[in-house]
Design a protein around this nucleic acid. Sequence first.
RNA 1: GCGCCCGUAGCUCAGUCGGAUAGAGCACCUGCCUUCUAAGCAGGGGGUCACAGGUUCGAAUCCUGUCGGGCGCGCCA
Length: 604
Amino acid sequence: MNVFAEVESKVLDALAGLQKQDVLPEGLDFGNVAVEHPRDPSHGDLACNAAMVLAKAAKLKPRDIADALAAALKADPDILSVEVAGPGFLNLRMKPAFWHAVIGTILGAGARYGASSIGAGERTNVEYVSANPTGPMHVGHCRGAVFGDAVANLLQFAGYDVTREYYINDAGGQVDVLARSVFLRYREALGEDIGEIPAGLYPGEYLKPVGEALAKAKGNSLVGQPESAWLADVRTFAIDQIMPMIKDDLAALNIKHDVFFSEASLTKGGTDKVQAAVADLRARGLIYEGRLEKPKGHDDEEWEDREQTLFKSSEFGDEADRALMKSDGSYTYFAGDVAYHYDKLGRGYRHLINVFGADHIGYIPRMLATVAAFTGGAVERDAKGKLKHWHTTGGSADLDIKVVNLVKLFKNGEPFKMSKRAGTFVTLRDVVDEVGRDPVRFMMLYRKELEQLDFDFAKVTEQSKDNPVFYVQYAHARAASVLRNARETFPGLAFAEGGKVVADLSLLTDAGELDLVKKASFYPSLIEGAARAHEPHRVAFYLYDLASAFHGHWTRGNDLPQLRVIQADNRALTAARCALIAALQHVLSSGLTVLGVGAPEAMR
RNA sequence: GCGCCCGUAGCUCAGUCGGAUAGAGCACCUGCCUUCUAAGCAGGGGGUCACAGGUUCGAAUCCUGUCGGGCGCGCCA
């Protein structure tokens, strides 16, 4: 229960009352009636649009409905005043006791304040990172990793049963290149002069220890053998060496996946999960043998018209059907992904969330089509048949694809090209070591995921003090500090015991104090909205706003000592204010935890 | 050529299931440390919400078109 819902139910009760008195007709749809907080504080604590929303259907003037509704609401014991303003807004002010009770709610809930049950324990799979296991992570991976992790945190806090999953692309050409690159380093480790790393292989220094480990494990038994003799083994060996590097990098960002799913495992050991998935689609009449048209404007001279196994993704809004087999008879990457999602659905998830990079935007429609096909759902489209949202609806499970836009790299203001081949890439670890985990995470979350993000390595390291994360953390530390000091001034000071407020909150009469409570009271609905939309950045902005209000109130105590929390001659007032500060601290700490950012007790 | 994303203050971005006078940070200017932490606060200047139409009580938000930037466009992963 949050304050908006609480007050909305009061409004709905009042509307029902007006219907009984024949002021309003029966059969009105109250679905669009909303209680929100007005941007302008002079418009009251909460505002309601009921009169304007209902005017047309009720065949009454908005002002008339508003007046009647205002009269009815004035009788409510929690409501201080009701004003009708503008075209028919209802501006409500709540009594101080109503806000005081919120402090009790927060302290009672503790770290669980803001936690929601909208997820109803539904099983949810968030797939993120899924970087190729060919080397350590670089900065470009960082955004999707942090974003996916925060979405997972958010959904967990909102009551979903969340699994964090990483899809290891350990099949296909790139890992073969990895194996060849490692084999070269293996020969190097055995004393051979390998010279320049040939084009087409990964030159990174990080492969040296992998080659050395291979030499240690295999001696010189592989030297001189044909590639076919060692490729598969070296590939497995290399991936086994590199995945821990990636897990370490993720750990540096405080990210830990529950499941690592291997692409290669789909076709390993005699089982062919791809075949099973494709058979399922075939049974639904969505597989056929056919030809694809050459895309216009894409003058590929090597285009070869051929018949192939296709999935009818165009039936679900994709612009073309998609191939499942390569000309050499092996599966496409997409076929593997079809099987992977078939497997995920088979594991009983109700919601799937995939975090993609913007360079995979063209891949979205076929993935949506796949899940829509398996679940009997649909991909939402507008009147013209275009994809409207990146999610499926109506099936036994749904998929939402979140796209994080590119991180454009700069170095001292100049665009910076990263290349694994040239060895000029900035590793994620470099950035985390230099800037720190919390600033990196907050920076990645302090904007909408679809916005492009400029990342100037030099600037970011140099200006990390300007990062808004410190502003929010400082607010938390301030709260912690004042509570420490208060206990020093009043040994044994108690304001809450066992989740029950024991301080006399009616002493909190300052408007600034009540404003802080109001802001804090928005937190639960903020979490629900952010969780529904899969938008963790809302939490980051909310925290900044709450921190700002707290800093402002705090500094008022500089000029007006009577506003300070600790009043050495007034234990009861100090206790009441500590209850408020502790409530704020809970909210700040909770929000930071959702973002995966630390909530320090001190900043010095 | 086609698809998708983005376009809001000098810069970086919030706000968009339609709501009241469009917000913040940075930068610039003016004040505030004998202080519960100044990594802070208060205030000032700065806007045709890319442009043009449309929908309605009301549009930065929805629709149509145009312009600009980005990502992508059978068998790569």
